[in-house]
Amino acid sequence: MTVIKFADKPQQKIRPTKLPKCPLNQIVNDFFPLEFQSLFLTQVQLEEAAEIRIRLYRPLMILYRSGKEQVLNVICQREQLNYIIERLNQSSVYAWEEEYRRGYITITGGHRVGLSGKALLEGGNIRTMKNISSLNFRIAHQVLGAADRIMPYLNEKHRLCNTLIAAPPGCGKTTLLRDIVRQLSDGLYAPLGSMTVGLVDERSEIAGSVDGEAQLEVGIRTDILDGCPKSEGMVMMIRSMSPQVIVTDEIGTKEDINAISMALSAGVKVIATIHGSCWRELCNRPFLRPLLDSHSFERIIFLTNKERIGRLELVMASDGNDYTVMEKC
């Protein structure tokens, strides 16, 4: 008789198939007309770039991660811009209506292209965008290990704490959140072990999904709900995928907060981010107050971009009655 043995822990580390890597020069090859390609090859350090800005009848600009700006000696004409747009939308405007409405397209590699032009309205809401005049290629940089310093704060007696990460825009919240997801999902931080993660990625920023496929590394136990409104998504996740942790980005509306309360009462852990740079600002957020008063979040982590992006500023911990400063950098 064959006896099937179940191993308590995987004996060896199982690595998932490698995600499709999209080298940066492929973006240039795929989307830019020939006359731009040669410029990029000779003058631009693509690996260091954070943004490529293209505006109609204006010179091309590259913004580097160091904050430096480079203005290229070439003017973008209408046909060149149209070529890039046609490559981006694969000659199929109808397929990207939702993306046009939201103002960006996510491309292979998880990079995002912001669009601006003339908005067409219907009943006061944006229906689509026409005559696009500016593009902004925002290069996604996954920082593996970005959460190494944070992970110990999320652990309390081998149990994950409900955590809120607060920072102004551009401080590395999403990068940090992505790495937390990866580490929890792959079980890289030993005291917490591995967990099933339900990732509600409304704006495709965390996993950078294209056609429902994650372009950035988010771990082997992560289920991604891509492009779904957070409030509905969290409820769907709890019902359908039974996650141990729900992770979502940039909460703020009343519906989001209600969904989080629901998740917490269902016994699911929540990790979320929010805009705000200090405790007072969080308290002023209209709908967040009840969650803070009820001490639903056991940890609140503040990030800053002073000195470097994603620097840990303050960690607050709740003991059920009070928030106390756990770590101040």
Partner: peptide, 12 residues
């Protein structure tokens, strides 16, 4: 493919 599946042209 186009009107109901919203498939981009190359794939369609």
């Amino acid at each position: 493919e186009i009107c109901y599946g919203l498939t981009p042209l190359p794939k369609a």
